Simulated assay, not measured.
Amino acid sequence: MRYPGWVPRSGAEARRRLQQAALELYQERGFDQTTTAEIAARAGVNERTFFRHFPDKREVLFDGEADLRAALMEAVADAPDGLKPLETLLSAFRKAGRILEENRPFSEPRLAIIAVTPALRERDLAKAASLTEAVAQALRQRGVADRLAGLAAQTGWAAFHHAAQDWIDDPSQSLDAHLLRAFDDLRTLSATASHDRPDRS
């Protein structure tokens, strides 16, 4: 709902209001049917203020990418020595996952909107590729071989994304619990693959 006469007191407050307004409108009307002018009006600011904070209406839903990237790279760097690449990523994703859990009121509808909007799915894939490369680079800095770092980052990100979707679908368990299960499933798949591998001797 709009609050006539309400003016955000700070840039951070205006940004939060714009995000909340966009989320409400995307849920009510759909992403494609919502304009930046409508988002600004719902938030009680003008359209110029919207563009001071976001380059377009898609980026409202991807505002936390920089924080997630920083948290992941820091968590990979700080993981205990001696962990294998996937175990390093599990440790990192468990820490970074707290960002999503703390922001569930935004995270849940955000994922639902992206899932039904082709333009947002395309942007989500591009962002995921960027984050995956950042994680791979953090693994390389820990001494993981280039090829293995890339494969681990892509596999780990897929497990994280899978766990996040499960968490949205089944909120009775924490994101951390879903993440642990996803990585357990990865280990099961890996063990199965090694047992089924043909003898190359």
Rank of each mutant, 00 (worst) to 15 (best):
G97V: 06
L89T: 00
A163C: 09
R9T: 15
D146T: 12
L72G: 01
R58I: 02
T88C: 13
Q20C: 05
E108N: 07
W157R: 11
G30W: 03
A66F: 07
D78P: 02
D169F: 02
D124H: 08
A193F: 04
R98F: 00
D67Y: 02
P80L: 04
K57C: 07
A134G: 15
Q141G: 13
A129C: 04
E24S: 14
E59D: 15
V60E: 06
T188H: 11
W157G: 02
H178N: 10
P171Y: 04
G82W: 02
E59L: 09
V135Q: 06
A115K: 14
S172D: 14
D166C: 12
Q137W: 00
G64C: 02
T155S: 14
L151P: 00
A145Y: 00
A163V: 04
N46H: 12
A163S: 07
V116Q: 14
L68K: 05
R2F: 08
P171F: 04
T34E: 10
P171I: 04
E102L: 13
L175Q: 09
A145H: 07
I168D: 06
A153H: 00
T36D: 11
D63L: 10
W167Q: 10
L72D: 00
G30E: 10
A136G: 13
E65K: 01
W157F: 10
R16F: 01
P171T: 04
A182F: 00
R104W: 04
A149M: 07
P55G: 05
E74H: 09
A112W: 00
F31K: 06
Q165F: 01
S174E: 09
A92H: 04
D166G: 10
F106G: 03
P198L: 09
A92Q: 03
S201G: 15
G11H: 08
A37M: 05
A193P: 05
K95E: 13
Q173V: 01
F31H: 13
R200T: 14
S190A: 15
R98L: 11
P109L: 03
D146F: 02
D199C: 06
P8Y: 05
